[in-house]
Design a protein around this nucleic acid. Structure first.
Length: 710
DNA sequence: GCGATCAGGT
DNA sequence: CACACCTGATCGC
């Protein structure tokens, strides 16, 4: 929840995203996007009176935001006061104090924020300095570097203050899979289900808020089914959205809602009331987009998690992750940062502790040497932002950096180039040291971190409660060992002395050996925690058959009969590293595809296809370049004809998606990414064994066969 | 009757 | 443990 009061200290005459109380006296208003929590007071009688008293007072926003806002009659009284500013078009505005006649000139630029349709950041430039208000934003790593208007010439502008969306500004949200990863995960799940028959439909359990449109568009484009929604009049002037949504319920993708849509779903009914077609009952799965996050050390990034017999969650985030935020701020390198949001339970101090070191004010104090500001990267190549952004950012990208041994990096880094240096040195140091301290403080942190996302909110999670089978990860064979991770206080320390710890081991190895080892551990961040050990075995189980129980990591589909044996297999997990790691060539190109091949195809597709809807395009109101090219003719055909070849399809075919058998149900609902079941009869490794394993791991050797044997 | 606020839910 | 929103209860005007 935004706790931003509406005003920036540099320009107190403007109010942004808040319209109540003191903001009623503002000379100009700005709305970054159309979410209610940024519209407080906007339709209040007091504001209405304020407008009636002055024709001059304006609300500035993007054209899309204006359109969405005025769709609701509640905001109609703003109509003659709204000024839609084109995105990325610097505009001079005059702030007039109507009582004194005093005037203040200000240049404002709207920058795409990637949060929802029409969402923007505001860049103010005036005599009190340059101020960036981010609103809510999701920008991938390196995206700031591609925004021309954040730069003057090739250098990033001298920004006095950033008012920042800090929703996920906490290391526990270190990584959130990219939009593209999430999208293709959802796409493949939807594709595989809907291609089983025309009666297989998907319900996207989306919240009542703007922001899912690009998902609808991409699904519709790829699969050829428009998405059923309750209302679409707000998109009447946005053809590229309008074309992909429908109020006709006869479609296989639904995002309709009902006050008690969960009940509907449990009764095998869509929120719109559909339950069968031509007398044939529908087979419905639900996919709930929700934020999933991953700790720094976890390289696993499953974007789809099965939560029930026919319920899934898919990773989806409107906000930047911790590392994206840090990338953004360190690139901008402002004098000051002010958090707009305090993560619940977090304090301003804690957030500032993270952000301060990224600011110039702080860097100056710490380092006398002048640090040049960042430099503009490739100018506006949005298409490429869809792909692996790391590749675009050669020396700058964190992941590219981490592939180079740190020592080497420091030696070879150029001494006077802009951002490369900017992002290096100090910033990195601070990150390193932060990591070191967290790794130290508690195993619990370590474990939580590794463990992956969280996001157990609500209703359909009851079965997930045991998702983290900690015992297996524990080095201690007995049951009390759980406390090492969970409760652990003093005895935790003790047991740690006896048991070789992966992070400690790795650190010491790193000192002894040359830095080559880092090649075996592409992400240096993976060094901590025993999870990496197990997730490895988990991750490669494909090739080693180490454990059929963990095979949900496999990208293959579980083709489930009604037996229970494979209940662990039916979790569909699509992880980003699998997509990178697996060889596409081993999969057939037939009508039905494996997850992996399909994913890689879409990844390929996504690059050059300019008709694809991209998050930063969410400001297009009435684009002339709409290409309503449904490449889905084939898919449609598939759906008509093909229910065969199911073994190649992502999701199991089940005649009875809601198995009444509670045993089966509980089983199948566990996400095996969370849960690493103990192999029957197996015992946890002894300290010396562990040491041995660590050594082999560090050397890059395969430990799996042995582990299995032990 | 309306709005603001809170609690509780999805 | 998040977000964005909705509903319903309560209070004040």
């Amino acid at each position: 929840m935004s706790r931003f009061g509406g005003r920036v200290r540099e320009y107190p005459g403007v109010s942004i995203d808040r319209f109540d109380r003191g903001n009623l006296r503002a000379r100009a208003y700005f709305l970054s996007h159309c979410h209610k929590d940024h519209m407080k007071g906007l339709r209040a009688p007091a504001m209405k009176r304020r407008l009636e008293g002055s024709l001059k007072v304006k609300l500035y926003c993007s054209p899309v935001t204006k359109e969405l806002l005025l769709t609701s009659w509640k905001y109609k009284f703003w109509e003659n006061h709204i000024v839609a500013l084109e995105v990325e078009t610097p505009t001079q505005i005059s702030l007039l104090d109507e009582t004194t006649g005093e005037k203040e000139d200000l240049e404002v630029t709207l920058l795409p924020a990637g949060h929802c349709p029409g969402s923007v950041m505001f860049l103010f430039e005036g005599e009190n300095g340059t101020v960036l208000y981010t609103g809510d934003f999701r920008l991938a790593k390196g995206e700031a570097a591609r925004m021309e208007l954040l730069h003057s010439g090739t250098r990033v502008k001298d920004i006095q203050s950033v008012y920042l969306d800090t929703t996920f500004c906490d290391p526990k949200y270190y990584h959130i899979p990219s939009r593209e990863e999430c999208l293709s995960g959802i796409l493949e799940l939807v594709r595989s289900w809907t291609s089983l028959s025309r009666y297989h439909v998907v319900w996207l359990n989306c919240k009542a808020a703007y922001g899912y449109e690009y998902l609808f568009i991409n699904l519709s484009e790829e699969l050829g089914f428009r998405v059923h929604v309750n209302k679409l009049d707000m998109f009447r002037n946005m053809p590229e959205i309008l074309y992909h949504v429908t109020t006709d319920r006869h479609t296989q993708i639904h995002a309709c809602r009902h006050p008690r849509d969960d009940e509907c779903f449990r009764g095998n009914r869509l929120p719109c009331g559909m339950t069968c077609q031509n007398g044939t009952p529908l087979h419905i799965i639900s996919i709930k987009p929700s934020t999933m996050w991953f700790g720094e050390r976890n390289k696993k990034t499953s974007v789809i998690v099965r939560t029930g017999e026919s319920t899934y969650r898919a990773c989806f985030s409107f906000h930047s992750s911790y590392s994206e935020i840090k990338d953004f701020v360190s690139y901008i390198c402002p004098m000051n940062v002010y958090p707009n949001v305090l993560p619940l339970g977090g304090t301003e101090d804690k957030v500032m502790e993270i952000l301060k070191p990224l600011c110039r004010s702080y860097r100056r104090n710490m380092e006398p040497r002048y640090k040049p500001l960042g430099t503009l990267k490739r100018v506006h190549k949005r298409d490429s932002s869809d792909t692996d952004e790391d590749d675009l950012f050669d020396t700058e990208s964190a992941s590219a950096r981490s592939k180079i041994p740190k020592q080497q990096r420091e030696e070879s880094r150029p001494s006077s180039t802009g951002q490369a240096e900017n992002a290096e040195g100090h910033i990195n140091e601070s990150r390193e040291s932060y990591k070191a301290t967290t790794a130290y403080t508690s195993l619990k942190v370590d474990f939580m971190d590794c463990e992956e996302s969280n996001d157990d909110d609500d209703e359909d999670d009851d079965e997930e409660s045991e998702k983290n089978t900690v015992q297996v990860l524990s080095p201690e064979p007995d049951a009390t060992s759980t406390s090492n991770f969970n409760g652990g206080t003093s005895d935790q320390q003790e047991s740690n002395d006896n048991i070789p710890r992966w992070d400690a081991f790795f650190k010491c190895n790193k000192l002894e050996e040359s830095s080559e080892n880092e090649d075996n551990f592409p992400s240096s961040a993976d060094a901590g925690g025993s999870q990496s050990l197990f997730s490895d075995s988990d991750g490669v189980s494909d090739s080693t058959h180490i454990s059929s129980q963990n095979s949900s990591q496999s990208t293959h589909i579980s083709e489930q009969g009604s037996q229970g044996w494979d209940s662990q297999m039916d979790t569909v997990l699509i992880t980003s590293q699998e997509r990178n790691a697996l060889d596409v060539s081993c999969f057939s190109k037939g009508g039905s595809r494996t997850v992996v091949s399909a994913l890689q195809e879409t990844a390929k597709d996504s690059q050059p296809d300019s008709s694809r809807w991209k998050p930063l395009d969410q400001n297009r109101l009435c684009a002339h370049d709409v290409v309503c090219d449904l490449k889905s003719k084939d898919c449609e055909k598939d759906a008509e004809t093909g229910t065969g070849d199911i073994q190649d399809v992502l999701v199991e075919v089940s005649d009875n998606p809601r198995s009444p058998d509670p045993e089966l149900r509980r089983d199948s609902q566990s996400s095996s990414d969370f849960e690493i079941p103990m192999t029957p009869g197996a015992e946890a490794p002894k300290p010396d064994k562990l040491y041995c394993l660590y050594q082999k791991l560090a050397a890059g050797e395969c430990i799996l066969g042995e582990k299995k044997g032990s």
